[in-house]
């Protein structure tokens, strides 16, 4: 959680069991550099220098891009997809769940990407299901797995 994973060449990136967090994945199909972050909250708190940047949408998105560029990605070629941001605590006594960080996480990641000039190829966010996301560098295929619907391909980051 809150980690920034980057790989080059071949392999898979995964985030297991995302609840209200967002798994954001980027791929540069030419350099074969891929990266993933597990975003927990929309924005960094003030005066918290030692926090991992990957934890927050506003600091995590630029940190992911920077880590990918350092590994040889060309910023303008990175394609992004994301999943997560669910409200897993769907049952409550008064039928009105106030736990909506998931929705805010999804919106914050999307807003930060837009601000930096990126389009999101595909996203599977919101709802009530916990998700596992897997991206395979060789194929560019981004899959989302839930307990109720099994595994499905969300998109191909190689276009």
């Amino acid at each position: 959680m809150a980690e920034i994973q980057v790989i080059r060449g071949t392999g898979q990136l995964t985030c297991l069991g995302l609840g209200s967090c967002i798994g954001l994945c980027g791929l540069d199909p030419v350099s074969n550099v891929a990266g993933m972050i597990h975003v927990m909250l929309p924005e960094a708190f003030q005066a918290k220098g030692e926090e991992k940047p990957g934890k927050f949408a506003d600091t995590g998105v630029p940190a992911l891009i920077e880590a990918m560029v350092r590994l040889g990605a060309n910023q303008s070629r990175i394609a992004f997809a994301m999943a997560g941001g669910a409200q897993v605590f769907k049952f409550s006594a008064n039928n009105e769940s106030k736990l909506d960080i998931g929705t805010r996480n999804g919106a914050a990641v999307a807003a930060k990407l837009r601000e930096l000039g990126f389009e999101i190829v595909a996203q599977d966010t919101g709802g009530n299901s916990g998700r596992t996301v897997i991206m395979t560098v060789e194929t560019g295929i981004f899959t989302v797995r839930t307990v109720t619907s099994g595994e499905k391909t969300l998109c191909n980051l190689r276009g």
Binding site: L18, L99, S129, R131, T146
Partner: peptide, 10 residues
């Protein structure tokens, strides 16, 4: 609040 889901997601 109650969640019935993947343990890691909870």
């Amino acid at each position: 609040y109650l969640a019935i889901e993947m343990s890691a997601a909870i």
